[in-house]
Amino acid sequence: MKLKEIKGKELAEIESILRKEFGIEKLPEYRLYLWGEDRIIAFTGDLSERDIWNISTIASIESLGVYIGKKDMNGIRLSIEGTHLLQSQINKNVFEITDEKMLEEWMSGADLQIATGKKGFLVMKHNEDFLGCGKASESKISNFIPKERRLKVSEK
């Protein structure tokens, strides 16, 4: 099992990054895991560590909880679900998509050719909808919407 619970110093480090990046003051009381090297998973289940380990000896654990973000040398890139779970606390580095055309572009997986004056991860938002993170550089916001979640505009 490539799964490791994030505790102690590691957890504090993640909390600190999320506070700095997006203003998230306190993570909800989920258990966080590292899946592989860099994928952060939130698990709200109440099985003990020992029970989870026991299950892993019985069957292959293919996934646990929900993927909320990825650790990266630049910080933490929240997934769509990560922004959904933490939306009530996100108050920093938010990019508001204001028009429908831009929303369609973003949801279809395209980078937005726009200078935000910021560098690093931004939470993308349209009205009440949180859409995961983009990465701002000088002249664009790079898109990370996974293929299976993209709007297939050509089919319209």
Partner: peptide, 18 residues
């Protein structure tokens, strides 16, 4: 299964294969 669970934000599920 994984894709659908992810999309729906089910955070209390363990997926096993057996």
């Amino acid at each position: 299964l994984k894709t659908n669970l992810e999309r729906c934000g089910t955070a209390n599920v363990i997926i096993t294969k057996r």
